[in-house]
Structures are given as structure tokens and as C-alpha cells.
């Protein structure tokens, strides 16, 4: 549990990855950890390269950015090209199988999850893909316990948004479960 997590969620503007990184950081703090969240995005509101980052630690966090993530999620081909090379040696790479055409395993700890496809199929829209991602991350890595994330949801989303985001999160948990069966448990 004392693992230092350097999480980078990368993709395009509009996928909600910065929001997902904020919810993850908030949950980590509720769980009693230290956490910082940063972001990088272009001037476009949608479509430009975008990333949300979270460091979770038991120690002080001075430098708030991440050079080499040990958990990297890529939600576009560009994201894979830009970030996969920076993944730490023992890092975990999760790609959105729906959007990323590069599906050859890049690192040993490699998970393919059809994030956007599942979201579209079960919820009829892409916009909840960020909470599907979060569910998948939580199931695969247990970086923060599931119940703490659910508690964060209650405070984070308005009542009308809560239900669908919870559904998306649950879809992600199940997708994570399947990914573990396909690709195996991760080793720290």
C-alpha cells in the first residue's frame, strides 16, 4: 500500500481525463494519502493533446509533475506515440482498445481495454469514458479502494450526473476484471 504511484492519463481534450485525474487525486487524499494533480492541455477545448497526472505518495511531494509514469493510460494513437516511451521500466500501460490502433504489447505489463467502445455500447455516449477508465484503473491496480472512489463520487457529481457516472465506473470495474483475466495480474 505504500507504493509511490505516478499516474498519467493521456488522450485528447474532451475525453474527460483531467476530470478523472481530479477524482482519483481526491479519492487518494480521502484514503489518507498525499496526492497532487496537474494537467497539460492545449488552447483548444476539444481534440488537442491533453493529459492529467496524479502522484500518490506517503511522503511530501515537492516536484508536482511526472517524468516517468508507472501507470500510463493512453486514449489515442498520439498519446501512445508521445508517452509510451517515458513509461517506467516496471510500469503498467493501459490502452483504449477502441481508439488506439497500435495494439502490439509495448511493455510487459500491458492491458488492452475497449473503454470507449463499452461506454458507447452500454451508455449510448462517449462522454462517460473517463469514469470507465477510472473503474478499469481501480480494478487492475487497486491504487485506491473502490469504496473510497464511490464516496468521492457522491461529493463530486451533481445528483443528475451521479447515476450515469456510477454506471460508467461499474462498467470500468468489470472491464478491468476481464482485462486481468486476459493479461494477468500486475506485479508491483
Amino acid at each position: 500500500m505504500s507504493k509511490l504511484w505516478k499516474v498519467r492519463l493521456s488522450g485528447k481534450g474532451g475525453q474527460g481525463l483531467i476530470t478523472a485525474s481530479i477524482v482519483l487525486a481526491d479519492a487518494a487524499i480521502r484514503f489518507g494519502k498525499n496526492a497532487v494533480q496537474t494537467q497539460s492541455y492545449g488552447p483548444e477545448s476539444r481534440g488537442g493533446a491533453c493529459r492529467g497526472e496524479v502522484i500518490i505518495s506517503d511522503q511530501n511531494i515537492y516536484y508536482p509533475k511526472i517524468s516517468h509514469p508507472n501507470l500510463l493510460v493512453c486514449m489515442s494513437d498520439t498519446a501512445v506515440k508521445t508517452h509510451a516511451g517515458f513509461l517506467a521500466g516496471d510500469g503498467i500501460l493501459i490502452i483504449d482498445e477502441t481508439l488506439v490502433t497500435q495494439t502490439r504489447p509495448i511493455k510487459s505489463q500491458f492491458y488492452k481495454v475497449p473503454i470507449t467502445g463499452l461506454c458507447r455500447e452500454k451508455l449510448g455516449q462517449d462522454i462517460y469514458a473517463n469514469m470507465v477508465v477510472l473503474g478499469a484503473i481501480i480494478r487492475i491496480t487497486e491504487v485506491v479502494p473502490e469504496n473510497v472512489v464511490l464516496e468521492t463520487f457522491q461529493d463530486y457529481f451533481s445528483l443528475e450526473m451521479l447515476e450515469t457516472n456510477l454506471q460508467a465506473f461499474t462498467i470500468g470495474l468489470k472491464a478491468g476484471e476481464k482485462a486481468i483475466k486476459r493479461f494477468g495480474e500486475f506485479s508491483a
Binding site: 481530479i22 487525486a25 487524499i29 498525499n34 496526492a35 497532487v36 494533480q37 496537474t38 494537467q39 511531494i61 508536482p64 509533475k65
Partner: peptide, 9 residues
């Protein structure tokens, strides 16, 4: 911008 947008504990 780093401090303005930074979220932390």
C-alpha cells in the same frame, strides 16, 4: 500556471 492549476492536499 503550475501553482494556479495545481491541486494538492
Amino acid at each position: 500556471e503550475v501553482i494556479g492549476h495545481l491541486r494538492e492536499r
